[in-house]
Nucleic acid binder design. Structure first.
Lengths: 348, 348
DNA sequence: CATCATATACTCAATCTGAGTATATTGAGG
DNA sequence: CCTCAATATACTCAGATTGAGTATATGATG
């Protein structure tokens, strides 16, 4: 595909159609698939990152990207699995569609002549160890891109030190701005998203938080995209590593989705080896969700829900009493309508 | 993806990456938007349906459809609101992206040479009475298309009379078929999806049920698309009214999404007038979800969660004691991370 | 063998939930 | 005006679930 010639051709053809068509006719666009491929390695949640050329703002990291060609693949998912395998060597297990991103840039520019690329984001989960020899790309911790999401060692310092003062500043600049499309004030949005002033931290609001930082001009992507809010900062702290295009937004969507999903679907086991101890399971859940869980209750919950069954074996050398090994109990899918790890944060 | 420059870069860089992948064609496709516009009128959940020319199989009903032109609209949602207003006169309130449907074969034409159309499904909610003079289209009960989903008068007879025997027949034809992509037998899938043999009915599995009926060749769309399974039936009962293209699948997705969503987001109020009694609220929830709810507990739940507040007025002529009027309490959005109508089925 | 570290088991109060019964207010019919 | 039917609203209570402990089991270490 895609010799440069062909690409030009397709761009030209897109243009032609657009030029001939009256307003409001179907315009041809190109479809790309982006995959947020997630695993947990050594209790660290990671995503498969491709390092490309640095963009205008110096961002080099991106998500795997591939084209979708309806001639070649019957469905998006088949296409996705195909080029992910070809590009990186990773065989995807679970995959689900996340969201289709099609904004014509956040800086609407009428002079835009290139072909429009719509990208369909996918979330894929895979077991870490099975795919460590990558043909291309590397596994990077996702907290690298979202340091404020990592609550495993308590509330991240960056929240208090950087994010809170900046966002409060930004919010106060337009304190009373309440429009009909945005019925909540900036202050309230900031409070809810980031759990300031005693509001609770909702680990699922990953995208909302990222978009708020973007709006406030606090992430590098905002400056790159020429958002006005980004210009108002004298010196802007780097909040997480930026990514190319809107890939960080896609990754944020993916993280939010996994965090929500493990609570009502047993997708956590896609990230685990076939046999594991309950504590390993807990650590994996914690890697995804952030906060610590109450160990005894976690065990009660997981066993009580019939999500796992003991294999009969034990794991020695745990540093203490040996731990029973468990496996995912598939039958749970046939028993409960929404089996998942319904965890509540706790201590220890 | 932002300035035109960057956008061009995006295509080029995509091309570079893809050059490493196996050959395929980056074909241009066209993007359409489909909207499942949902309201509740007289305790009946309805969707806005456009009646078009009858297709190969005689289906005339379809969802509103409009093209997406990146030149004209900055985002999908802006485009959607625009042409929905133009086509039908309806002003959309809440709208969210559902899913992007791109399977080849959507067009139901095997020798398909035209441009491939990818359609992005949207769910929109609106208050019924505000939009009853439609420029085009009509409000049809969604149970018209999915009669087996309507549990408001108990278990729908069609399940026992038609669906259960047919699906059991279909499942037994390939009883032991368990592939790696489909780790559950047909029998088990049928049992879980439709709640046979004492399995519970999960009202959210609307799409799964529809797809199972499609696979089994029991809905008209399957015959139209030339599925083999559809040919095995001597006479095929009509299970619900068919729709054009894959619109019934999109509608099924929408119904499943609303049913799930009202449990953790207060979207139910998008369907209500600004003032209502608690019983009216309950009837609306029941219209969406199906089963009856326990009245006293529903009240306790909704009030206890702070979702509503009394206006101080009452509604007379309820047929009994006057009912207090309530309104949605917006502040709940600022208080709870996931405010919704967390209903449990019950009696009375 | 004592001690540490971890795994696993059990306990208990507070809360939530399902399912009632009881009471309040209207309109309709005599 | 009184009674009754119909609906709205209030209160009760037992059982399940949850949050947060304490207690015990068992291998590793020196």
């Amino acid at each position: 595909m895609n010799s440069p010639t062909e690409l030009r051709r397709s761009a030209v053809s897109a243009n032609r159609i657009v030029a001939l068509a009256p307003r409001s006719e179907l315009a041809s666009v190109e479809i790309g698939l982006n995959a947020a491929i997630v695993a947990v390695a050594n209790n660290e949640p990671v995503a498969l990152i491709i390092r490309g050329e640095s963009d205008v703002a110096g961002a080099t990291d991106g998500l795997p990207f591939g084209p979708f060609s309806p001639r070649e693949h019957r469905t998006f998912e088949i296409g996705l699995r195909d080029w992910v395998r070809a590009q990186t060597g990773v065989e995807l297990g679970y995959a689900e569609q996340l969201y289709t991103f099609g904004d014509r840039g956040r800086s609407a520019d009428p002079g835009d002549v290139g072909p429009h690329v719509v990208s369909i984001g996918y979330l894929a989960l895979t077991e870490a160890n099975s795919s460590f020899e990558l043909a291309r790309g590397s596994w990077n911790s996702w907290y690298h891109y979202f340091p404020w999401e990592d609550w495993r060692k308590g509330r991240p310092g960056i929240l208090e030190a950087v994010i809170e003062p900046r966002l409060r500043d930004w919010a106060s600049r337009l304190a009373m701005h309440v429009s009909s499309t945005q019925p909540v004030s900036r202050q309230e949005r900031v409070r809810i998203c980031f759990g300031f002033d005693g509001a609770s931290w909702d680990e699922e609001k990953v995208l909302e938080r990222f978009e708020l930082l973007y709006e406030a001009g606090l992430v590098d992507e905002a400056a790159r995209d020429g958002r006005d809010s980004a210009k108002t900062w004298q010196e802007r702290p780097q909040l997480g590593t930026p990514m190319q295009f809107d890939h960080r937004r896609i990754l944020a969507t993916a993280i939010g989705r996994v965090r929500a999903k493990i609570k009502y679907r047993p997708v956590i086991f896609e990230l685990m080896p076939s046999e594991f101890t309950l504590y390993e399971l807990q650590r994996t859940v914690e890697a995804i969700l952030g906060p610590h869980l109450h160990k005894q209750n976690f065990r009660r919950l997981v066993e009580g829900a019939g999500l796992v069954e003991p294999t009969g074996e034990v794991r020695m050398r745990t540093g203490g009493r040996p731990a029973k090994l468990f496996r995912f109990r598939r039958e749970v899918l046939l028993e409960r309508p929404a089996p998942g790890v319904r965890v509540k944060p706790g201590k220890s």
